[in-house]
């Protein structure tokens, strides 16, 4: 398990994406899967800043990963407000984008692009988001 702690602000999104991209490559994921990981962690971190902390530079995001047999397990841990994914309505991606509220896509992307997405709220310990990306079977 490798851990890096980033101050929760938008300027660090690139560093967070790069941290997990290196991890995904080390886990042997192909570049399409690495991109999926980058998108998912960007959306996750942006949601933490916007919703768990309610703004920039209020807390930190503890980023860690573990290379597992068939891919990678990623953890983002914050100390903000509880996040309950069940309260977020899934976006209606078949409707006119103009009439849609500009929200809900981040969680949707995470769930579409990663294989297992799980949120737990740990009281004062904050939110722990775990996502896995499993390697596609070759041939």
């Amino acid at each position: 398990m490798q851990l890096e702690v980033f101050p929760a602000n938008f300027r660090n999104l690139e560093k967070i994406r790069d941290f997990f991209a290196r991890a995904a490559r080390a886990a042997g994921l192909d570049e399409d899967a690495v991109y999926d990981v980058q998108m998912a962690v960007d959306e996750a971190a942006a949601n933490i800043i916007d919703h768990a902390y309610g703004g920039e530079d209020i807390g930190v995001i503890e980023c860690s990963f573990e290379i597992i047999d068939n891919g990678i397990r990623i953890v983002l841990h914050d100390h903000g407000k509880a996040f309950d994914p069940d309260l977020i309505a899934p976006p209606d991606v078949s409707s006119d984008p103009c009439s849609r509220k500009p929200r809900g896509l981040g969680l949707y992307f995470m769930q579409k692009l990663m294989d297992n997405v799980n949120f737990t709220f740990n009281g004062d310990g904050g939110n722990i988001l775990t996502m896995e990306k499993i390697k596609e079977k070759c041939c």
């Binding site: 980058q38 103009c98 500009p102």
Partner: peptide, 19 residues
């Protein structure tokens, strides 16, 4: 090289205004 949902919504807002 990369676009997140924040960027996608900027594109939608621009399209809405233009159309």
């Amino acid at each position: 090289e990369f676009i997140s949902s924040a960027g996608l919504w900027v594109m939608v807002t621009a399209q809405k205004k233009c159309k």
